[in-house]
Design a protein around this nucleic acid. Structure first.
Lengths: 266, 266
DNA sequence: CCTTGTCATTGCAAATATTGAACGTTATTC
DNA sequence: GAATAACGTTCAATATTTGCAATGACAAGG
């Protein structure tokens, strides 16, 4: 694997390739992710360089992806970009995902009742979370996050959820914790205390740490025993989250997450 | 290629595999599409059988896809399904697609002004179209179609658009035309006349053929010279589309499609 | 107008992913 | 409850894809 030419190529790709018995797929996925990141279409060489691939291999992968309508090829400029095929897959996933289907009405109700933005997220271990459902109240200032967004696992209220109920050791948590970016980062001890509190109350709160002035509440959802698979999240601006509004919100969110867990495990 | 065991396996996959220099990707795409179709998670053998793949190869492809979070694997049931990774790709595509970005506000305005459902679609030759943008008025009966949906190319008003402006020969059109399913199918001559009218007026209409009682209007959008790349579509129920409403809608839709073509080609 | 650099693309040899059969395990049927 | 079928998985041989160097096309710059 000729790699160290460029400082940071793609360590994830590199490790995926070593072991896999279908490396073309790792390459394809890496290409799709790269094309997704870039707003401008890219040429073969640029892609190959950035991912540490051989140009010819990269070309063949791109051609195969283009055939499947997952990437678009412009014959004039010879540039590649994501294509609409990914949309179709996403829609199909949304149609069949139980969590999305069941969570959406709950999120809608919560958003309307409390006048805030609510999210449903799927948890991927200590790596990251993906927002798979969203609802916004009609209120003036709404914090917008789109379905499909990825966030680091341990950040904000969902992060405390994962830490509280995932059964991870401090040794696993600390290095990840230290890489996070917050508006107002808590200390490790402070954070640990908040995680403990989340474990005791069953629900996690981020009071302006991740984004200052913004309070985030997250409740875990279990699909199976073990660690939580999803989370319900409510995001509000200071004023809406002060006073007695917050306890009531926590209670309601917790109720929703419990009901959801029951439905999913059945 | 051991194929003819099962009546209809996947001819598209079969042809893709023959020529490709990255067949694993054709296989992966076929698997993703299959998993998208099915609402229930599937086992390795079931997938392999349905697609005419060798189980072991299928397993390796699935493992690779799972590693990339494009498919989810349930270790208990040993079943595979689509995973949320496809959502992230779709979101990235939406963020960067010019047509989506530019069409959305136009569609919103049209939907509100005329009280109907509007769509933006990307055209894929004579094969199919994919809905990439949508807007719904708040009105009572709204015809819902989701972003990411695929339709046969030649059906409804968009089909007449494609036939009118794509420069296809009758020999290419007719076999495709005959495979379509309509609520009230037009005859070939009838349809040809409507296509000609669309070519003359610049805009296509489907008056209750595709879905009875529903009128669909579609205007072509050009990204480059040659054939149209996209279409703007308005869908309304009978009453809203009768009288003088329809001419005004056609005029407005046509104006929007022209302005969009200008912006995209720039 | 020629040179130089970059780009996409191709041919060939070598590394390796695919195949099909065999294995152990789970689920189904009698 | 035993037998059987189906499943997921592993392994070694082979057909294939990958990687590299070379080619042709193109644009920028001298």
């Amino acid at each position: 694997m000729s790699s160290d030419q460029h400082p940071v190529i793609d360590s994830q790709l590199a490790t995926s390739l070593k072991a896999s018995k279908a490396p073309a797929i790792s390459r394809a996925a890496a290409i799709l992710r790269l094309l997704g990141k870039r707003s401008q279409p890219m040429g073969v060489q640029a892609i190959a360089r950035e991912l540490g691939l051989v140009p010819s291999t990269c070309l063949y992968v791109l051609r195969a992806l283009a055939e499947e309508e997952l990437v678009a090829f412009d014959p004039d400029t010879k540039r590649y970009a994501l294509d609409a095929g990914v949309l179709t897959l996403a829609r199909q996933w949304l149609r069949h995902d139980q969590f999305h289907e069941l969570a959406q009405p709950l999120l809608d109700r919560l958003a309307r009742e409390f006048g805030l933005t609510t999210l449903g997220a799927q948890l991927f271990g200590l790596d990251h979370i993906i927002v798979t459902a969203m609802s916004q109240s009609g209120e003036a200032f709404q914090l917008s996050t789109q379905v499909g967004s990825r966030f680091p696992a341990l950040v904000s209220a969902t992060g405390r959820c994962i830490a509280a109920f995932g059964g991870w050791s401090d040794a696993q948590l600390k290095p990840r914790f230290e890489k996070l970016r917050w508006d107002e980062a808590p200390s490790w001890e402070e954070w640990k205390a908040q995680v403990t509190e989340a474990r005791e109350t069953g629900i996690a709160v981020d009071a302006g740490h991740y984004i200052s002035g913004v309070t985030v509440v997250a409740a875990p959802v279990w699909k199976t025993e073990g660690r939580p698979s999803h989370a319900l999240v409510a995001i509000g601006i200071g004023s809406a989250m002060r006073g007695e509004g917050l306890p009531r919100l926590k209670e309601t969110l917790l109720g929703a997450s419990r009901s959801l867990s029951d439905q999913l495990s059945g």
